[in-house]
Amino acid sequence: MTAESPRYTVEELAAKVGMSPRNIRAHQTRNLLGAPVRRGRTAYYDDSHVRRLEAIKSLQRQGYNLVAIEAILGVRTPEPAGDGLHTLLQRIGREQPVLVQALARHGVLAHAEDGSVQMVRARLMRTVVELNRAGVHTVPSLQVLAEVLDRLRIVAEDLVRTTGQRLVDGSPTLRAEATATWDNLEGTADALATGMIHLLAEAFRTVLENLAASPVATVDNG
Rank of each mutant, 00 (worst) to 15 (best):
T181I: 02
N184W: 11
D150N: 10
G63P: 04
P172I: 06
G187F: 01
P215V: 10
A217F: 13
Q101S: 12
E209F: 06
Q60C: 10
V75C: 04
R94I: 04
G195L: 11
R22P: 01
V100R: 00
Y64P: 02
I56S: 07
H106F: 12
M119E: 10
Q96P: 00
A35T: 15
D83Y: 06
L142K: 00
L33S: 00
P36W: 00
V207N: 09
K16L: 15
R41E: 12
P140N: 10
A35H: 13
V120A: 05
T77R: 14
R94E: 14
R76G: 03
H111D: 03
D150W: 03
H137G: 12
L167T: 09
D46P: 09
V155N: 04
T9K: 02
V155S: 10
R166H: 11
H111Y: 13
A176N: 02
R38C: 11
E4P: 09
S58A: 13
R51C: 06
V100P: 06
S141N: 10
L199P: 01
V216K: 08
R126G: 07
V75H: 08
H86A: 15
Y44T: 15
K57D: 07
L149K: 01
H137T: 12
E130R: 14
I197R: 12
L211W: 15
F204A: 08
A217H: 11
D158T: 09
R133G: 06
V129T: 14
L89G: 05
S141I: 06
V139A: 10
L103H: 01
H106K: 10
G18D: 05
I69Y: 02
A122L: 08
R133D: 13
D158L: 08
Q143W: 12
A203L: 14
A122G: 11
V216W: 09
A189P: 06
V128Q: 03
E95A: 15
E54K: 12
L174C: 02
P6G: 05
M196L: 12
T163D: 07
R38D: 07
G82N: 00
Y64T: 00
